[in-house]
């Protein structure tokens, strides 16, 4: 299943946050979106995921999602969004219950996704007992449990410290290499973008427009911390964004 954005524009009241966006998200690719703060990166993700309606334009779903996908467009949120009153297991079963998946069948799915995110031994833990990195792993395993056609990741690593972030990034890479999935990954961190994206969509400051789409061809498994060519791309991206970020920073906040 591919996704296509046609002439997407969005306003909050009088304030236009986005205009004229066209973008293809082909199946099996990871699209990273970067841009200065306030450019509407997260709004874009919510528009794609159907949590908000665009003021103009439309988001199209091309082709049917795979039959085994319970929730084709699945989010991973920056703040994890775990129910604090449910255990790790309970948080995952939450999203299965509504599909009538209970008992042994649910157990099997939960065991599988927990194994894939190395959480097996924390199955009965409450969120308050987990570190930030662990919580985000729970959120990722919850997302994996519904077999998403497209994973919509909204700054998933931004609430974590830098070491945890590196570790979790490695985990994401190994998850993807074992079983590739389509993803739209929003971040303000260029390093994450070059490590994880097939394409990097650079947005301008508000009202957000697509400035450039940069492709990173190197296979995911071969990308490593401190790769010279990745550094090069990151520098290029930064130069693209620098002016925008500077201007965006000086804008009065009146949201």
């Amino acid at each position: 299943m591919d996704l296509r954005l046609e002439n997407i524009g969005h306003s909050y009241g009088d304030m236009e946050v986005m205009q004229g966006m066209d973008l293809e998200i082909p199946a099996g690719k990871r699209v990273c979106s970067v841009g200065p703060s306030g450019c509407g990166k997260s709004t874009l993700l919510r528009l794609i995921g159907g949590l908000e309606q665009p003021t103009t334009g439309r988001v199209l779903q091309i082709g049917e999602p795979p039959a085994e996908s319970l929730n084709p467009l699945t989010f991973v949120f920056q703040d994890f969004a775990l129910l604090p009153w449910r255990t790790v297991e309970g948080n995952i079963s939450l999203v299965l219950e509504d599909h009538g998946i209970r008992g042994k069948q649910a157990d099997a799915i939960i065991s599988d996704v927990l194994a894939r995110t190395k959480l097996t031994e924390f199955r009965k833990a409450l969120p308050k007992q987990l570190s930030g990195g662990m919580k985000q792993r729970v959120a990722i395993s919850r997302a994996l449990a519904v077999n998403p056609a497209v994973m919509l990741m909204d700054e998933p690593l931004s609430a974590l410290d830098s070491q945890t972030r590196e570790l979790l990034m490695d985990d994401l890479v190994s998850l993807w290499t074992r079983e590739p999935f389509t993803a739209v990954y929003v971040t303000h961190n260029l390093h994450e973008a070059v490590r994880l994206g097939h394409f990097i969509v650079v947005l301008s400051r508000r009202p957000g427009r697509i400035r450039e789409v940069v492709a990173v061809d190197k296979p995911l498994a071969e990308r490593e911390l401190g790769d010279a060519d990745l550094e090069q791309t990151q520098k290029y991206l930064w130069n693209l964004m620098r002016e925008e970020a500077l201007a965006a920073d000086k804008e009065l906040i009146n949201v």
């Binding site: 949590l51 467009l73 949120f77 703040d79 969004a81 129910l83 009153w85 939450l94 999203v95 219950e97």
Partner: peptide, 27 residues
């Protein structure tokens, strides 16, 4: 609200969101 948005993002039914997210959260 982010928990309710999460529930919607997983296409939980209105009833599930109320009983599994809103009520425990309001407890």
């Amino acid at each position: 609200r982010s928990l309710i948005r999460m529930g919607q993002s997983f296409s939980l039914s209105w009833f599930s969101i109320v009983t599994k997210i809103v009520l425990p959260g309001a407890m």
